[in-house]
């Protein structure tokens, strides 16, 4: 049951996108995220969605997984859309429960939803096509300049990778504790909110205790193997740029320019 909570888990496949250098992917995702905030036209968003679908095809990640993840975010999307739609002033289109629904409101909310979907799909693509180990290596490289401020990128990276590594472990543990409490009659499916919350506390406390114990054990294990990040520590996988990374950069650059120009021109802007 708790397995369903996993969103954005690495999807192993043999594709060009998977082979790209994680640093490039991280950078491109960052640029893409920024780009999405500059775009206002519905038409360009539609175009962007088509482009995303193409990249997913290229990455051999089934769209089914993406749609499932987006579906899970739907409640959050709808709540924020619901709030916005009542708050924006302008030309009234129709009335709902005595509140004016405006043309501007509808327009803004629809762009917002599409924008968030575009953002989610982009970030998920990074997670689907990059293994946690690669991601951590990339973050470590990117954070290198922080050394000037006496921040150790290695330590940040190791914390990050430990956190990622323990997500499935903790999920399993949570499920085990949940079953144990259920066996003692805990009411997780209760219809009373109070009872339900009470039941969940019986998972949270044991989980916190076991997590801190685990962290302690892990620290001792690392220490006894003389772990230290940074200086003289070599990597199992060394990152290399390839020709594909260059192509990916160029294509993306073109794409960004194209979208920005279209957006500026206002040429295709369709006002709803």
């Amino acid at each position: 049951m708790l397995n369903n909570m996993m969103v954005g888990q690495f999807f192993a496949a043999d594709s060009i996108i998977h082979k790209l250098d994680p640093r490039i992917k991280l950078l491109l995702t960052f640029v893409y995220t920024l780009l999405m905030f500059f775009i206002e036209s519905m038409f360009i968003f539609t175009f962007n969605i088509l482009a995303i679908i193409m990249v997913y095809k290229l990455a051999r990640v089934p769209l089914k997984i993406l749609i499932k993840s987006i579906k899970r975010m739907l409640p959050i999307l709808l709540i924020s859309a619901g709030i916005n739609i009542f708050l924006i002033q302008g030309e009234t289109v129709f009335k709902f429960l005595g509140i004016n629904i405006t043309k501007q409101g509808l327009c803004m909310v629809s762009t917002m939803i599409v924008r968030i979907i575009c953002l989610i799909s982009g970030m998920l693509l990074l997670l689907y096509t990059t293994s946690p180990a690669e991601l951590v290596a990339a973050i470590e490289k990117i954070l290198k300049p922080l050394k000037i401020f006496k921040v150790s990128p290695e330590e940040i990276a190791i914390m990050f990778s430990i956190a990622l590594h323990f997500v499935p472990v903790l999920l399993l543990e949570a499920e085990r504790i949940m079953n144990a409490q259920r066996a003692r009659g805990a009411k997780f499916d209760s219809k009373h909110l109070k009872e339900k919350l009470k039941a969940y506390i019986t998972i949270v406390i044991p989980l916190l205790i076991s997590t801190s114990n685990r962290a302690n054990d892990l620290a001792i294990a690392m220490e006894s193997r003389c772990y230290h990040g940074g200086e003289n520590r070599t990597r199992f996988k060394i990152l290399h740029y390839s020709a594909y990374d260059l192509y990916a950069l160029l294509i993306s650059l073109l794409y960004v320019l194209l979208l920005l120009i279209f957006n500026k021109l206002d040429f295709f802007k369709i006002v709803m």
């Binding site: 085990r176 066996a183 949270v204």
Partner: peptide
Amino acid sequence: VGLVFQYPEHQMF
């Protein structure tokens, strides 16, 4: 039907 899990001491809260 009471079930005592493996390492039941991990369920205490």
